[in-house]
Amino acid sequence: MTKWHRQKFPALNQTVSTERFDLVKMNGWQVFKAFRRTAIDDDLRGSVFRYMKRPSLIKTYAMMRKATNKSSHTFAIQIRETGELLGWHSFKLRPYKTAVLTIVLFNRERELSGVGVEVRRALIRHLARHAGVENFSGFTNVRNFSSVQLYQKLGFKRVGTHSHVDFDHETDRIMSSFYFELNGEALDRFVEENDT
C-alpha cells in the first residue's frame, strides 16, 4: 500500500487560482530554474537555504531532485493577467497528513502587497479539502520578519522556538527559528472562512 505522503492526489497537479494569481505545478526544469534564481540572490538564499554559500549547478540540481520527488511539490506563483513569474511555493507532504510549507517571492513591490497571504490561503484550503491534509507546518528564522508576519496573518500557532541554531556570517548574528502549525479546529475554521 502506498504511503499517504507519496500518493498521487489529483489535486497536487491542479492549478490553484486566486483573485490575482495562479499557482501552477512546475516540472523539474522549471523548479531548477526557480531554485537557481533563488540561490544566486543573496537575500533570498539566506531566507530559504539556511545560510548556505551560493550553491553550484550540481548542488542546485540535487536540491531540485529532492523538491520534485513523490512527496514534494512546487508551484509557480504567476500573475493571472500576464503570467509573470513572481516566485514559488512548495510543500513537502509528511506522514501523518502534514504539509510543510515554503514560499519565495522574487520581488516585494508595494503594488503586489499581500501576495503571500493570498496564495498560501488558497493553497491551504485546496490541500485541506482535496488532498486530506490535516496539519500545515512551517519554520522560519526569527529575523525573516515578512515570513513571520505571513504565518501570524494566516492564524498559524507558534509551537516552538529553536534557539541559536544558525549563524548569519553576513550580519554576524546568531539566529533562531520559529516553528508554526495550523491544524485541528483552527484549520477547520480557516477552510470554512476561506471557502469562497
Partner: peptide, 18 residues
C-alpha cells in the same frame, strides 16, 4: 493590529520591526 489593519502587510511589518 496586523489582523485588523489591512495596510499592515509584510513590507510594512519589516519596516516596523527595523
Amino acid at each position: 493590529s496586523l489582523h485588523n489593519f489591512d495596510q499592515w502587510d509584510s513590507i510594512a511589518h519589516v519596516h516596523i520591526m527595523l
